[in-house]
Design a protein around this nucleic acid. Structure first.
Length: 213
DNA sequence: AAGAGGATGAACT
DNA sequence: GTTCATCCTCTTG
C-alpha cells in the first residue's frame, strides 16, 4: 500500500474549526467494509454544521435530545440520522467531546466496489446519481442508522476515512450556502459552509447563485 | 397524544 | 418544472 495513504487518526477530527475541517475532508477517501464487502469513494462535497451558534445545526442553542446526543461525542464519531423518514445522512462529528459540530458528507466519487454500490442502490449501471447526494452515497456505502455513534478511527471500524494522494487546493474549493436551509434560519442560511471540488461531476448540484437585490 | 416539518430522492409532466 | 413517498423527531398541549 502507498505510504502516503493511511487511516485518519483521531487527532485529525479534534479541531474546533468545523468549517476548516469540512474543507480538509475534500479529497479524502471514505471506505466501508461491511461483511467483506468493500466500497469506497472520494469525498467531493461537504457541509459544516456548528453547534451551538448555528441555527442550521441540529444542536443549535445547545439542544440536547436523543437524536442530537451523538453530535456531542468526540471528534471522529459517526453521526447518522434519517431525513424525511427514509434517507440516511452520513455525518462526521468533529471537535472535543461536548462540542456539537458535525460535517455532512454530501457527495462522493466512487472508487472501489462500484458493483456493490449499484446493487445497494438498485441500479444497473454507474452514472453520477449513484452517489451525488447525501442519501445516495450513504446507501451506496451501506451506511445505516445502526452505525450512528460508531468511531471512524478504530482498526475494526466498518467505516473509516483515509487520506490519499489527492491534494485539493484552496482555489479548487467552491463554497456556497448550504442546501435545504429554510428562510426561518435567517442569517445562518447565508453562511457559505457548503464546500465542493470545482468542476467535479459527482457533486450533488451546482451552486445556485443568490442575487441579493 | 397529536401534528408539523425536515441537512432528500424518485418519478412524474 | 411538480408532486409525493414515508417516518422519525421534536414541539405543543
Amino acid at each position: 500500500m502507498d505510504q502516503n495513504v493511511h487511516v485518519l487518526p483521531q487527532t485529525f477530527y479534534q479541531s474546533t474549526d468545523v468549517v476548516h475541517l469540512a474543507k480538509q475532508l475534500l479529497g479524502k477517501i471514505v471506505i466501508s467494509d461491511i461483511e467483506g464487502k468493500i466500497t469506497s469513494g472520494i469525498i467531493v462535497e461537504t457541509e459544516a454544521y456548528r453547534g451551538p451558534d448555528d441555527k442550521g445545526c441540529h444542536a443549535y442553542g445547545g439542544r440536547y435530545t436523543e437524536r442530537t446526543r451523538t453530535m456531542y461525542a468526540i471528534g471522529g464519531t459517526v453521526y447518522v440520522y434519517i431525513c424525511y423518514g427514509m434517507h440516511p445522512m452520513f455525518n462526521v462529528v468533529t471537535g472535543p467531546e461536548g462540542d456539537a459540530h458535525a460535517i455532512l458528507i454530501r457527495a462522493i466519487e466512487p472508487l472501489n466496489g462500484a458493483e456493490i454500490m449499484l446493487e445497494r442502490r438498485n441500479m444497473s449501471f454507474a452514472k453520477t446519481d449513484l452517489t451525488n447526494g447525501p442519501g445516495k452515497l450513504a446507501v451506496s456505502l451501506g451506511i445505516t442508522k445502526e452505525m450512528n455513534g460508531s468511531l471512524l478511527y478504530e482498526k475494526e471500524s466498518t467505516i473509516y476515512i483515509k487520506s490519499g494522494n489527492i491534494v485539493v487546493e484552496e482555489k479548487d474549493i467552491v463554497s456556497g450556502p448550504r442546501v435545504g436551509m429554510s428562510v426561518h434560519v435567517g442569517p445562518c442560511a447565508h453562511r457559505p459552509w457548503r464546500f465542493y471540488i470545482r468542476d467535479n461531476p459527482w457533486v450533488s448540484k451546482p451552486l445556485v447563485v443568490n442575487y441579493k437585490w
